[in-house]
Design a protein around this nucleic acid. Structure first.
Length: 391
RNA sequence: GGGUAGGUUGAGCAGGUGGUGAGCUCCGCUGGCUGUAGACCAGCCGCCUUCGGCUGUGGGGGUUCGAUUCCCUCCCUGCCCA
């Protein structure tokens, strides 16, 4: 049994450790933060601009969100972290009183592409909003996050696409390590946890080295970055099978950054991941794709125009309680704003309920077998492939 | 009734003054989206047997080797005047 982890701003306890038979690395835990408790495995909806697009805080709560993610880079540029601090901090600003994790802005180093230049000290980039020039260093990224007042800050890192050449991955990974140390040194806020990020691309040795390096730091949690990119599912699984076993006796939560499809969540929980975030359920919802047990519905398809049934009969979300598929299909065609809210409510409710069922299954000692419905959909969890047997 | 401007693929248009009109935007159809520059992007969107072929510029007729273009006539629509 792993001893609980505790720092000034975070405490992590395992309610259900992974089974001794090695059939799965899945576990249930409780992460206690300044603004509340997060049960793991858990999914964090992404609210980049201090809002989960299309939803109110009440909608988020109704969907079952216990922690959300916000973005350092975006809030620094607009409205400005100092303004948010003056206005009482991020929680008060967006009226969300549960935990918030802020991503450091490292991901934007990749996603903004040509707008930035990386050097050893930090990143110089052009604002995507007005073209003005800005600079982020590990110290600055931490300073912004402390001003925002999130429950969890994340070290400034330099992710690269998984398919990048090994030399590129190696350089970015080593720089990420130096930046993690600087992030840690710069961090001072007692009521805010700090997570470090493992990089290393798809190379097993780089990944292992990065895992050891980050795990040796006194951070409050271990992020696994650089995935959810252009890698295959198998490459992702193999990478997790390198990282997680090295953390087997580590008492801190493991956070896989950027993954969010039901199949991906299931697979990664099986391989020992505790926390997730992704824009996927919210983004695909806005684009008309609704997640239901056993598959997905594209509400733009004309077959839904006369469909009086709810999207998912047993779903407690605002959409499914009160409206038909036909109504939602109409709203999407008319580009009515309610479409985006209702669809996002549903997909986040679905995703967060999926995590509830995963936790229940782990508690019952039947994971992943009782998730068989999803298992068929995932098509990847075979009995001979149990995580622990090969690790 | 007179005058005038028009009639182009579901809608709205562009273009075309005798030498091969399938171009655009909507609408529509189908995919995609994973630490959010994303209520977005991509493909298709006359017909067929689709690396090609056929049809198509309001209807009919005429001139011509060749007509969306020139001529005649008819129909329809907007506006102005009676």
């Amino acid at each position: 049994m792993i001893a609980p982890f505790a720092s000034g701003a975070a405490r992590y306890e395992l309610d259900v450790p992974p089974p001794a038979d090695g059939s799965t690395r899945a576990r249930v835990g409780r992460l206690t933060l300044t603004h509340g408790v997060v049960e793991t495995p858990q999914f964090m909806p992404v609210g980049t601009n201090a809002t989960v697009k299309a939803l109110s805080p009440d909608d988020l709560r109704d969907a079952g969100a216990s922690i959300i993610l916000a973005n350092t880079y975006h809030l620094y540029l607009r409205p400005g972290h100092e303004r948010i601090e003056r206005l009482g901090g991020l929680h008060r600003f967006m009226d969300w009183d549960r935990p918030i994790l802020t991503d450091s802005g490292g991901f934007q180093v990749v996603s903004l592409g040509d707008l930035r230049v990386v050097d050893e000290d930090g990143v110089t980039f052009r604002s995507h909003l007005d073209g003005s020039i800005h600079r982020f260093t590990p110290e600055h990224a931490i300073g912004v996050q402390e001003a925002l007042g999130s429950d969890i800050a994340v070290a400034f890192d330099q992710p690269v696409y998984p398919s990048s050449p090994l030399a590129v991955v190696a350089e970015a990974t080593e720089r990420t390590h130096r930046w993690a140390e600087r992030s840690l040194a710069a961090h001072s806020r007692e009521d805010q946890a700090l997570f470090g990020i493992v990089q290393g691309g798809l190379d097993p040795e780089l990944r292992a080295a990065s895992t050891r390096f980050i795990a040796d730091l006194p951070v409050d949690g271990i992020c696994i970055g650089g995935l959810a990119g252009d890698e295959t599912a198998q490459q992702r699984d193999e990478t997790l099978d390198v990282v997680v076993p090295l953390l087997a006796d580590d008492p801190r939560p493991r956070y896989l950054m950027g993954l969010g499809s039901p199949a991906d969540l299931l697979e990664a929980v099986h391989r020992g991941i505790d926390l997730f975030d992704s824009v996927l359920p919210a983004r695909v919802a806005r684009n008309g794709q609704l997640w239901v047990p056993g598959g997905r519905l594209n509400m733009r398809n004309q077959r839904f125009l006369d469909d009086p049934e709810p999207v998912q009969a047993d779903c407690p979300c605002l959409l499914c309680r009160r409206f038909s598929r036909a109504y939602l299909a109409h709203l999407f065609r008319a580009k009515e704003l309610l479409a985006y809210r209702l669809a996002t409510c549903h997909n986040l409710t679905f995703t967060l309920d999926f995590m509830v069922r995963i936790r229940a299954s782990i508690r019952a000692g039947t994971f992943p077998a009782t998730m068989s419905e999803s298992r068929v959909r995932a098509g990847r969890l075979s009995s001979g492939e149990a995580a622990g047997t090969s690790a």
